[in-house]
């Protein structure tokens, strides 16, 4: 993956395990029209060709769930923010 610094033209992908606590994560992510949510086995695959930003309050997850909801981040992308406000994944 050729990671452009501005994130354009690069597919960012993160994986979220399908368990009840995590259901709102892909739902909120999908509200951004640039984001696609697919499936790979029991994982949600959340992708976009721009930075993916998921708002914690919109997800409504308690802290323990919020800070453990990411199962994987595809090589080439990285989490650049994961705090009480938001999760942000963009080119590494």
């Amino acid at each position: 993956m050729g990671a452009g610094l501005d994130g354009t033209g690069v597919v960012n992908t993160l994986y979220v395990l399908d368990v009840p606590e995590n259901i709102a994560v892909p739902k909120v992510a999908a509200e951004d029209p640039a984001v696609t949510v697919g499936r790979l086995g029991p994982y949600f695959v959340i992708s976009a060709d721009q930075p993916i930003v998921i708002d914690r309050r919109a997800v409504g997850a308690r802290h323990a769930v919020w800070y453990s909801c990411v199962a994987g981040v595809a090589p080439g992308s990285a989490i650049t923010k994961h705090d009480k406000d938001a999760l942000r994944v963009e080119p590494a």
């Binding site: 994986y15 029991p42 090589p75």
Partner: peptide
Amino acid sequence: FGKLLARKAELIVERAAGWAPASTGP
């Protein structure tokens, strides 16, 4: 942690598609 999530993503791609729950998973 970042390296772990990157490696885990590779393993998800390798193994998750072929996974099936032993019984009726949700």
